[in-house]
């Protein structure tokens, strides 16, 4: 079986790196937190990993716009190595700020848009403020290897800029038809709805996106914050305390690598 190695990228203002590393370790991977400067110095360092994770936080203070400065850094220093990484059948995961970075760097949704970067973006919540609350997520794209199809999961969000928007109708249609939508915000019964079911006003309740390969996932909710039963917001009422829903994403990633790489 392949020895699974995940690199958790750090940068100024990234702050969910420790719990993300922990989640991957719980899932059976060897995870390592590495500052982006080390990778820019030696791009080949990426080669020993099968999973790249950009965790949550406020990279560079979210100055200009959320994830923008780190995305700019990736575009100018790491775009090609990351493309090569994906083409090699490996996995990329962006959580919250990491999702914003992947979108702003044009890695997600990674669809053919005539050479133009950024037909999709992530912007201010309709509520106009940062919010920490729990949401239900319904999986969509079957091809996304991180997803357990059919299993609705419950995770916390914590962001002020999580509203996914597409440039125009055609882009949105393409996101749907090409299976780029990974997760949607739903209520307990699986139905889409207004705030707070859809906590930020994302179009089509989009909570996460995947690329054409299904091996890149970005999502606003935090799977690494629900990896043990007692992280659930009313765990003390639950009769059956099962493992955190967030683990499905990490376990699926590790299993995929073990099986395919």
């Amino acid at each position: 079986m392949t020895h699974v190695k995940a690199i958790v990228l750090r940068a100024a203002g990234i702050n969910c790196d420790m719990e993300t590393e922990h989640a991957f370790e719980l899932a059976g991977a060897e995870a390592e937190r590495v500052h982006i400067n080390r990778i820019i110095e030696d791009k080949s360092a990426l080669e020993k990993y099968q999973i790249i994770v950009i965790p949550g936080g406020f990279s560079y203070g979210d100055d200009v716009a959320a994830g923008k400065i780190l995305a700019n850094q990736i575009i100018h220093h790491l775009y090609e190595p990351i493309q090569k990484f994906i083409e090699g059948g490996k996995l990329v995961l962006g959580i919250c700020n990491g999702f914003q970075v992947l979108v702003k760097a044009g890695i997600l949704p990674g669809m053919d848009s005539g050479g133009e970067k950024g037909p999709v973006t992530i912007t201010n919540n309709d509520s106009g403020k940062f919010e920490d609350r729990w949401v239900y997520l319904a999986p969509q794209a079957e091809k996304c290897i991180f997803i357990e199809s059919g299993r609705q999961i419950y995770l916390p969000i914590a962001h002020g800029e999580g509203k996914v928007v597409a440039k125009d109708k055609a882009t949105l249609e393409k996101l749907k038809s090409d299976g780029h939508i990974a997760f949607k915000y739903v209520d307990e019964n699986g139905n889409e709805g207004d705030y707070p079911v859809n906590p930020n006003g994302s179009v089509d309740s989009i909570a996460g996106l995947t690329d054409a390969t299904g091996r890149v996932l970005g999502l606003m909710p935090h799977p690494e914050r629900y990896v043990r039963a007692t992280q659930h917001p009313h765990w003390s009422r639950l009769v059956n305390k099962r493992n955190g829903d967030g683990m499905t994403i990490f376990v699926n990633a590790v299993k995929f690598v073990q099986k395919n790489l």
Binding site: E19, H22, E131, D132, R133, A158
Partner: peptide, 9 residues
């Protein structure tokens, strides 16, 4: 809710 009370896991 405006405070992140769950970061660090």
């Amino acid at each position: 809710r405006q405070y992140d009370h769950e970061v660090q896991g």
